[in-house]
């Protein structure tokens, strides 16, 4: 198993204690394309933060590729995030004063990869995502779809074991959403990238092979969706 969560609990202590995750058990294998679905407040974002080592959990165990992720120093956590995980965010989260290629280079900069090498790699990835011509443009000169593809290139450049996408289509129109989802499934199919998408859109979830439903901090149903017919209204297109 690539990802293994055993009885993971998380409580926020902001004034009133809020028990967000109530014993999550989840296994995700290498090469899977999984979506985590749930209403807002269901704890799906918290789960994503824990999966992405952006946040700590209180009790339980979390393994990536057999490595226990617990009680890490900031430096270790940063290193794991850098090498094991690629992030795709709803609001793209590109750095606005850096060009597309500079944004893609950034994770390699923190790995200490030489300037020429990381520029070359960033160009390769942009080229693969069809953005080679846009390498010198700033995020505000690009469309939403282009920005998300830059973000995907940035997530992929370190060769991560897991690609975490938090509402990757949340800020996109339906046509672009579909393109992005197709791109993700293509990456999953052709390159064998393990992808976890967090979403509340059934259409988005329908693009994935496995749908994990989370409700009130507990994993509900795990749906096998290899046939891609989970959603009654999302069979043909991504519904908005």
């Amino acid at each position: 198993m690539l990802i293994e969560l055993k009885d993971v609990n998380k409580t926020y202590n902001n004034g009133q204690p809020l028990h967000v995750l109530k014993g999550i058990n989840l296994s995700i294998d290498k090469g899977e394309f999984v979506s985590i679905m749930g209403a807002s407040g269901s704890g799906k974002s918290t789960l994503l933060n824990i999966l992405g080592i952006l946040d700590n959990y209180d009790t339980g165990e979390y393994y990536i590729d057999g490595r226990l992720i617990k009680g890490l120093t900031e430096k270790q956590a940063a290193d794991y995030r850098n090498r094991l995980i690629g992030f795709i965010f709803q609001s793209f989260n590109l750095i606005s004063f850096k060009t597309a290629v500079e944004n893609v280079e950034l994770p390699l900069f923190y790995q200490g990869v030489s300037r020429a090498r990381r520029h070359q790699m960033a160009m390769e990835y942009l080229d693969r995502l069809g953005l080679a011509d846009w390498a010198g443009h700033y995020p505000n000169e690009m469309s939403g779809g282009q920005k998300q593809r830059v973000a995907i290139a940035r997530a992929l450049i370190t060769g991560p074991k897991i690609l975490l996408a938090d509402e990757p289509t949340g800020a996109l129109d339906s046509k672009t959403s579909e393109e992005v989802m197709q791109l993700l499934s293509k990456l999953n199919r052709e390159d064998g990238v393990t992808i976890i998408v967090v979403t509340h859109e059934s259409g988005v979830a329908n693009c994935t092979d496995k749908i994990v439903h989370i409700k009130d901090g507990i994993i509900g149903r795990i749906e096998d969706n290899r046939a891609h017919n989970a959603s009654a209204f999302g069979t043909a297109t991504i519904m908005k």
Binding site: G52, L54, E74, K75, A78, D79, R81, N82, R83, F87, N93, L94, I95, S96, L106, P107, Y110, Q111, R154, T158
Partner: peptide
């Protein structure tokens, strides 16, 4: 804040 957060998310250590 956001920019620094992004940097942290993609692997910048506090020292960076």
């Amino acid at each position: 804040t956001t920019e620094i957060g992004i940097r942290r998310a993609i692997g910048a250590t506090p020292r960076d």
